[in-house]
Amino acid sequence: MSSKFQPVLIIGGSGVVGSQAAKIIRRLHPKLPIAIGGRDVGKAEAVAREVGNAIGVSVDLARPDLGFGHEPRFSAVVIFLKDEKLSSMRYAQRHGIPYISLSSGTFEVGPEMAQYIHAPDKAPILLASHWLAGAAIFPILEFAKAYEAIDTIRIGVLLDEQDMGGPAALADYNRITGLAPAALTVKDGKLHWAGGEDSKARYRSVDGVELDAVAYSPFDVMALSARTNAGNIRLDLAYSESASRRRGEPFSTEIVIEIAGRGRDGERLNHRHEIVHPAGQAPLTALGVALAVERMLGLAGGDASAPGLYLPEVLIDPAYYVRRMKEFGASFAERSLMAAE
C-alpha cells in the first residue's frame, strides 16, 4: 500500500528528533519513501542511509519552491523548525499535500491560521505544536473517558536539562519562553494568561521530589479547553533533573497528569497519572509525528485527510495513540488522589 506514495519530506529530518521520527515512520511503514531535508545535504544523506528507502535533500526555506522546482515531488511535508516565511506551508498548499507543523507557540499561531484561511481548499494543515507532539493530550483524552464531567486538568511536564535535543528545539524553547507575554491557562472557566508570580508553580516528580516549575502553553491547553470544557486547565514545565538521573541513570522525560471531576457513576474522581519514557523527550515527539503522518496519508485510522485545518486529537484515536506510546517504551502509572481532597 505504502509504495504508491512519493516521499514524505521531513524538514529538519537530520536533527535529533527528526531522525528518530523518520526511523519510527520506517518501522511502522517499511515501504513508505522518505526524504530527509536539511541545510547540510551530507548529514541528511547519512541519516537517509540509516533509515533506508530514503533520500537526503537540501532544503532552502528562503525560496518559494524550497529549492525543488515546480514539479510535485513529495506526498507530505513535516517541519521540525520555525519557518518564519511559511515557505514550507505555502509549498504544501501549492501542491495539495498534507503539512505538519510542530514549532509554534500558542501566542504565535496567527500567521499559520491566516495562511490557511486564505487558501482553505488547497491542503490538509495539521498544527501539532502540543507537548511532545501529543504525548500529554492523547493520554488525557483517554483518561477522560472515565469522567462524566471534568473540573480540573493539571499537567506537569519535566524536561531534563540534558534532554533539550538539537539546535532547533533549543531555538524554539528560547523563542517561546523569551517572547511569550504569558502562558495560556484556563481558570474558573475563563481563558487566563498567567505571568509573573502567577506563572510560578511546583512540580512533584515521579519519585516525590518537588521542583520549581513555570506555566507553559503549548497547544494542549487551548485544545483541552475546546474538547473537555474543564473549568481549570494548566500545564507547568520543570526544566530540571529527572528522577532517573537522580538515581544515577540516564535522563528520562516525565508527564504527570491530575484530573478531577465527576465519574460516570456520579461519584467524585480524582486521579494522578504518571508517564515516563526512559529515553527522554525525543522518542515520544518522534512517535507523535509518525502517527500524524500515517493518519494524514490514510495509512492508519481512516481515509487520507481532506483539505482543512486540524489539530492531531481530531484525527487520531486516543486509545490507539496511547497503545503506540506503550509499544514504543512509555510506562504508565496511576493512583487515586481521593484521600487528598
Rank of each mutant, 00 (worst) to 15 (best):
G105Y: 02
G105W: 02
G105H: 08
G105K: 02
G105C: 08
T106C: 12
T106D: 09
F107I: 10
F107K: 05
E108G: 07
E108R: 06
E108Q: 10
V109F: 09
V109N: 11
V109E: 09
V109A: 15
V109L: 15
V109I: 15
G110V: 14
G110R: 07
G110Y: 13
G110A: 15
G110E: 15
G110L: 12
G110N: 11
P111Q: 15
P111M: 12
P111G: 12
P111W: 09
P111E: 15
P111F: 12
E112Y: 14
E112S: 15
E112G: 05
E112T: 14
E112H: 14
A114G: 09
A114C: 05
A114M: 09
A114S: 13
Y116T: 00
Y116E: 01
Y116C: 00
Y116H: 03
Y116N: 01
I117V: 09
I117W: 07
I117Q: 07
I117A: 07
I117N: 00
H118D: 07
H118T: 12
H118E: 14
H118Y: 13
A119V: 03
A119W: 00
P120T: 04
P120Y: 10
P120L: 12
P120W: 08
P120S: 06
P120E: 05
D121H: 09
D121I: 04
D121Q: 09
K122N: 11
K122S: 10
K122Y: 04
A123S: 06
A123T: 02
A123P: 00
P124Y: 00
P124D: 04
P124S: 04
P124T: 05
P124E: 02
P124K: 03
I125M: 10
I125G: 02
I125H: 02
L126I: 04
L126G: 00
L126E: 00
L126W: 01
L126Y: 00
L126M: 05
L127P: 02
L127S: 06
L127I: 09
L127C: 04
A128T: 03
A128H: 06
A128K: 06
A128P: 00
A128N: 08
A128S: 12
A128D: 09
S129Y: 08
S129M: 12
S129A: 15
H130W: 08
W131A: 12
W131C: 11
L132R: 01
L132H: 04
L132T: 10
L132A: 14
L132P: 07
L132W: 11
L132I: 11
L132N: 01
A133G: 05
A133F: 15
A133I: 11
A133R: 01
A133P: 02
A133L: 14
G134C: 06
G134D: 07
G134S: 11
G134M: 06
A135R: 03
A135G: 06
A135Y: 05
A135D: 03
A135C: 10
A135F: 03
A135I: 13
A135L: 06
A135S: 14
A136C: 10
A136L: 11
A136M: 06
A136H: 00
A136K: 01
A136I: 07
I137Q: 07
I137Y: 04
I137W: 01
I137G: 03
I137C: 07
I137E: 02
F138A: 05
F138T: 02
P139A: 04
P139E: 09
P139C: 13
P139I: 10
P139F: 12
I140Y: 04
I140C: 07
I140R: 02
